[in-house]
Amino acid sequence: MNPATILENHRPPLWPHTLLAPLLAGAAVLLALAAPPVVGFALALFAGAVCIGSALTLARRVRSGERQLRELDKRLLQSQKLAAIGELSSGIAHEINNPLAIITQEIDLARELFGPSGCPDPADLAEVRDSLDQIGKQVERCRLITHKLLNFARKMEPVLQEEALEHVIEDMAILAEREAKGRGVAIVRAYDQTLPTVRTDVPLLRQVILNLLTNALAATPQGGTITLATRRSDDQIIIEVRDTGCGIPPENMAKIFNPFFTTKEPGKGTGLGLSLSHGIVTRLGGTLTAQSTPGHGATFTVALPL
């Protein structure tokens, strides 16, 4: 049903309560001033009754309006969920269809090279072998996608450990740093040394940090900087990965955490990294958010409860 129609159906007009009632009450009060006391008292009572009646009607209308709005919200959430599922399946279809398309073609080519005699020309043997290799490669690509999806679906309970945050993230920073150096990108650490220990799933959080650092590396051109910062904000621990890369265009902002959303070349990224990270941080009871001014880099923020 069109949301607008729910609100518009069976709506009596508002004017009896907003216009007529105050007018009647006002007139009654004015008359009561001029009238003898008994009549004035009756008129004042009448004015009061009109006001209370209108107020009650208006309150009821407001409440039913709110109820309808809540109902609408629920439907909207449901339709958003359905849209997300739709987007997910279309993403899976696309990611699997592309390697399947290559496999289909390689099989067609190999069959053709085998010819009607069933025996390929010796000159074509290398090509047949190359086709088989390629089929293997594409199957591997599909396998990687399905395995990551299974990881996605697997709900492993986090194992919570007390650990200094720096111990969790520093190894990932070192790893990213070696690669960053080769590309002329600097990694700057801005750790808050006074942070208390966190209680979290250490390897899962490492996975998130490494993923954010990898994305930052891919986005940052030579001479750029990636900042890895930690700080405390009220009852949360904040980890920030800032880069000076190309940033995220506003139209992509809403999609970056969607499974299969990627701006990389085909076969280069599965588009699952950020959505997996988002899932992990949520499971750890925190939030993963992004801010970006296009052209001025992006900041990904992990907020974990203390």
Binding site: N98, I102, E106, L109, S131, E265, P266, G267
Partner: peptide, 16 residues
């Protein structure tokens, strides 16, 4: 097509 292998093999097949 942005899939290099896809367009190359398709080209090979169509040329044949």
């Amino acid at each position: 097509d942005d899939e290099e292998r896809f367009r190359d093999t398709l080209a090979k097949l169509l040329s044949r």
